[in-house]
Design a protein around this nucleic acid. Structure first.
Lengths: 237, 237
DNA sequence: GTGGTTCAGTGGTTCAACCACTAATAGTAT
DNA sequence: ATACTATTAGTGGTTGAACCACTGAACCAC
């Protein structure tokens, strides 16, 4: 079976590896409508048990990448029509770096959604949540953790469940890549300023200001990240 | 929900039933951090095989509802911090009807995102896509299918991958509940008008108009749906 | 043609066993 | 007493073989 020949550290479980393997193969080499080999064939091909393959397939199905039809087989779905954000996230993580275009897409939508979320929050935030906000701002956690916590609090205070789940998506990505952004002290100070200003706006229940402040910091973030990327490309070229 | 000409044949697989069962139990009766019984105990309790339970758990894990730790057990995650939109969707479908508050949340965010998407699309749409748009508008499909297709085309033309995946979320829900909305001829005409107007705006590459038109029809939709709900409540009370 | 039957191939489920990891405990050496 | 190690019980991870349930195609009878 699977001999771990002391070469690599196999941190991932077997079915997780199969998920990555199949996902890459599907996205890069197959077309919607194509039929995958049978579970038995995949298992034999990878030299693993069929149950393990099934667990991997179950995940790919949940992501909207494949459709499993009893008695027929496994088919590639048109994931541009049926894929969900989790699939999008996985596609990002399959590569080592986020392509600039994808990053732009991500930041653009974030800039559209989050300010409105902040505006809603300013109108609905409770006294208790305001205290939590203050506790976050004055805490000594890392700026990344503080920023994530602030955003999560905004989403909660918006009183719109959907905002919470959408923000989870951004936060989960930002948690993995955001440390790079906050290595720059200027960026760190900018976010700390944002937190203080937003807290003020919330205290004043000024939704328009909350919107503007949030939009402003997100625009700043975008500029800085693009500048960072340009720098990389220039150094390479 | 789904319109089936002949009625209700639903043949859920075993592990799908287990997903629903466990999801309901977790959401209604358990708290984040709580420990689920072991896979063996769950299997014995439900009188099914452990492999079947594992497939169900795999799905719940992908949805961000639980965390499975090798050697330790299965724990409820704080899904308000880690759940994704697919979990949100499943929570909707666990009940037979969407609560009005959730529907409001859904429509509100749709009204924020989709107009911007249309504005982007008007600037980036290709000649070929314009022809596809026209083909959709002049086709004889049901208004629901046409509307879904139009939205999907907008998302594609926006040249932002994320819009596509976000729109999938809305479309998948709208596909199941939208037929109700289009039973009303006025709503049907309103959407057909929207399609024609938007096509015009796209042809003129008028992004501002595209935004306004889209925002307008979404606002109309919201009003009609709320009116519909109010009617229901009045009839009941 | 139409409808039923058979059959091969596929996913769905079961069973029993073992592997791998974790936390807690008991035991040992210092 | 303290620190370290070995053991152990319980958990998820994986395996192999077998059978069930569904689908589509080929075939047959009418």
């Amino acid at each position: 079976m699977k001999k771990n020949t002391l070469g690599k550290i196999q941190k991932n479980t077997l079915h997780q590896q199969i998920v990555s393997l199949l996902a890459k193969r599907i996205i890069n080499q197959m077309q919607p409508g194509d039929k995958l080999p049978s579970e038995r064939d995949i298992a034999a091909d990878l030299d693993v048990n069929r149950a393990t393959v099934r667990e991997a397939l179950k995940k790919l199905e949940t992501l909207g990448l494949i459709e499993i039809r009893h008695g027929e087989g496994i088919f590639i779905k048109d994931y541009l029509s049926s894929g969900n954000l989790e699939l999008f996230k996985m596609m990002i993580y399959l590569n080592d770096t986020i392509p600039l275009s994808i990053l732009q897409n991500l930041l653009e939508i974030r800039r559209i959604i989050v300010p409105q979320m902040a505006a809603n929050a300013s109108e609905n935030i409770t006294r208790e949540e305001l205290q939590q906000f203050e506790a976050i701002v004055t805490s000594h956690d890392s700026i990344l953790e503080k920023d994530l916590a602030v955003h999560q609090l905004i989403a909660k205070a918006s009183r719109n469940l959907l905002y919470i789940f959408i923000l989870n998506f951004f936060n989960q990505i930002f948690r993995d890549f955001g440390y790079l952004y906050f290595e720059n002290p200027d960026n760190q100070k900018r976010s700390e300023l944002f937190h203080r200003e937003l807290l003020e706006a919330f205290n004043a229940k000024n939704s328009k200001k909350a919107y503007t402040i949030t939009h402003s910091v997100l625009a700043y973030t975008e500029k800085r990240i693009f500048a960072y990327y340009s720098q990389i490309y220039n150094n390479k070229g």
